[in-house]
């Protein structure tokens, strides 16, 4: 796999980095432009200003949406990873008819167009009182976080040396004990990776977010960005939106910096040994 560096590879690497990073730098740059500087038609601000950050953090729409997003994305991620871990263990480890079907169902559901679910969910939620609540988003988020976690985890679990569990069972442990004492520590990195990926998806959702919420009570960040009014600001809220965008991008950058190897492995199922 190791090959000598061609000039093309280096050039390619530089191009990739420029391509991937420059839109992010652009939105950072926009967020530092105050007032009419937004419309300077240049990449960089004429004058650095933190005014937009002041604005977004004093805007209830944004601060509450940040809270909602973190809470809703975390809860739906935790729930689905918990359920998926148990199921993926069974699929990877146990022999029972129908497990292929389970994975097929998960795959089909992961491909489901979210918009198709939105109408009926809205209609149901408004009658049972889940409209514009956290739970009203956590449930539909499971429609993609759960199959995603199931797939990632069952792929990870295939790589785990199950002999150790066999050994534990030989020593008299029940399957449940063996699972808990031996497998869980081995599986933890995979579970963690599945959680990161599921979190990205839940953090990113827009369709459910705009359709099933309507106030600060449950509206997550992507929806808040789309409905940003900049409140008591006179200019178009482009600057404030950019600042808010930067704030919600920073966690993504941190996660990527800390866990790039795991995320790559999660997406490619460890086929690439970093």
């Amino acid at each position: 796999m190791k090959q000598r560096h061609g000039a093309w590879t280096v050039l390619g690497a530089i191009l990739i980095m420029v391509w991937a990073i420059s839109p992010v730098i652009w939105i950072f740059s926009l967020s530092f432009k105050a007032g009419d500087d937004i419309n300077n038609n240049r990449f960089w601000p004429t004058q650095f200003s933190l005014e937009n950050y002041d604005t977004v953090f004093s805007t209830a729409l944004f601060t509450s949406s940040l809270r909602n997003s973190i809470g809703i994305a975390l809860i739906s991620t935790l729930l689905s990873v918990a359920i998926a871990t148990v199921a993926a263990y069974a699929i990877a480890r146990l022999d029972f008819p129908g497990k292929r079907t389970v994975l097929s169902i998960a795959l089909a559901i992961a491909m489901f167009p979210a918009v198709s679910l939105v109408g009926p969910l809205f209609n149901t939620w408004r009658t049972v009182g889940l409209y514009d609540t956290w739970l009203g988003l956590i449930i539909p988020y499971m429609s993609f976080t759960l199959p995603l976690s199931l797939w990632t985890l069952s792929a990870f679990f295939k790589e785990i040396p199950w002999e150790m569990e066999e050994a534990a069972q030989m020593d008299g442990a029940t399957p449940w004990q063996a699972f808990r004492k031996v497998i869980v520590p081995l599986a933890a990195p995979g579970v963690f990776t599945a959680a990161i990926l599921a979190f990205f998806f839940a953090w990113n959702d827009f369709v459910f977010a705009i359709s099933l919420t309507s106030t600060n009570a449950a509206r997550p960040v992507p929806a808040a960005l789309a409905f940003f009014t900049g409140e008591s600001q006179f200019q178009q809220p482009a600057g404030a939106i950019s600042a808010a965008a930067v704030v919600v991008t920073i966690p993504v950058i941190i996660l990527v910096l800390l866990f790039q190897k795991r995320i790559v492995a999660g997406l490619t199922n460890g086929a690439v040994k970093g």
Binding site: M17, V24, W203, A245, V248, V252, I253, V256, I263, V264
Partner: peptide, 20 residues
């Protein structure tokens, strides 16, 4: 470096990308 930079667009919110 390449992997980190390539993962940023992957992880970024689509709405943020659209605004940018």
């Amino acid at each position: 470096g390449v992997r980190v930079s390539i993962l940023i667009p992957y992880g970024i919110i689509t709405v943020v990308s659209a605004f940018a």
